[in-house]
């Protein structure tokens, strides 16, 4: 992955509204641009700018169906960044620690 591609992905993620867009699309793959816009108080133009940033770095993919544009999350760029700084040892223990965090925070095994 080129440095410019990594920069583009990290810059795209360094914005709360864009992260919220990714959350919305992840929860509802194939949702339309209009349905995403409804979740924000900002203008449609502002959201379209955020969408273009996400399209450019391939975090968000879109398909045109008739007059609607359907959105899909592509997590591969995040995975490639993860791979760059994670070796097999780190991946195993990092995964184990994250799993403990999720379990505790979900309240599992608290009885």
């Amino acid at each position: 992955m080129e440095t410019t591609e990594i920069d583009a992905v990290l810059q795209a993620l360094a914005n709360a509204d864009r992260r919220k867009i990714l959350d919305l699309v992840k929860a509802d793959p194939g949702c339309t641009v209009s349905s995403v816009v409804k979740h924000f108080d900002t203008s449609r133009v502002a959201i379209m700018r955020h969408l273009n940033v996400l399209y450019d770095c391939k975090l968000l993919l879109h398909e045109k169906v008739g007059r609607s544009r359907h959105l899909y999350l592509n997590s591969v760029p995040i995975q490639l960044i993860y791979d760059r700084w994670t070796d097999e040892y780190g991946a195993f223990w990092g995964g184990q620690l994250a799993d403990i965090k999720y379990r505790v925070e979900r309240g599992e095994n608290n009885d």
């Binding site: 793959p29 194939g30 391939k58 993919l61 398909e63 899909y72 592509n74 997590s75 591969v76 490639l80």
Partner: peptide, 10 residues
């Protein structure tokens, strides 16, 4: 029904 798309540059 749902759909998933993944894309990558090679």
């Amino acid at each position: 029904m749902t759909k998933a798309i993944s894309t990558i540059f090679i």
